[in-house]
Structures are given as structure tokens and as C-alpha cells.
Amino acid sequence: MECHKSLTASWSTNRLWVEHKSVKLAHGNNKFCLNCHHPTNRNAFKHDDGSEIAESEVVALCARCHGTVHRDWKAGAHGRPNGYWDTSLGRQQKLTCIQCHDPHHPKFPMLQSLPAPTYPKRAARSSSENTQHEGNPKH
């Protein structure tokens, strides 16, 4: 944070090989740091008009581009609400954008699937089928 007090932030990403080397920006055609980060206040994000968005209000930042998703999120259809569907009985927690999505790399990484069901042990098998093969008998 201190750096940016003396150094002005650049619009381009050409400094990335010097600073913020860990950040690999892969956010579609959103290629510039200052599209989202506020140029002077490093703890804030940037609105369309250049005004600041507090870090806790990150949803408003993402909503600048992802309007339809934001609409879904507001309706509870995005962001996997947890806790209580009936808010009169308990608290509902809604996840914010960056709790799930890495803003620099919003595409989800591959997930390891949990164990598959097995072909039922008691069921019969065709003689032509390879009995060692526990996987999909179709392929």
C-alpha cells in the first residue's frame, strides 16, 4: 500500500512482471488493474464515475459489468444462500462475489469429484463385460 503513495498506478498491466507477480489476470477482456482498483485508494474499488467503493461493498463493483448476475444475486438465485430460507426463523447468509470467485481468475478450477457409485455388488454381470471394470459399462 505504501508504494502507491509515492508511485502513481499505471493503467496498463505492464508493471506486472515487476510488481504483483503472483497476480495472473485472466478476467476475460477486463485486462486493467484500474478497471476495478481505485487508482489512489488501494483499499477501495472504483465506481464508473471514479468514486470509491468500499472493500465490503465489492458486490457493487462486480455489478458494474455483471448486471444480470447481480440481479440474480439480489433475488437469492445466485450466491448460494445458506442458513435459513425462512428469514423469519433465522439468519440467512448470502455469499458475496469474491467469496467464491477469484476476481483475477474468475473461472472455477477443476474439482475432484467425490467417489462414484459402483455397479451394485449383488447385480448380475454379462459375461462379455470386463468384470474388472468398475466404471461406466457403456464406454
Binding site: A124, S126, S128, P137
Partner: peptide, 8 residues
């Protein structure tokens, strides 16, 4: 005729 190799 059997299906995907299943033909019991």
C-alpha cells in the same frame, strides 16, 4: 439384442 455389451 443387448445394450452396450449387456446381454444376459
Amino acid at each position: 439384442f443387448g445394450l452396450h455389451g449387456h446381454d444376459r
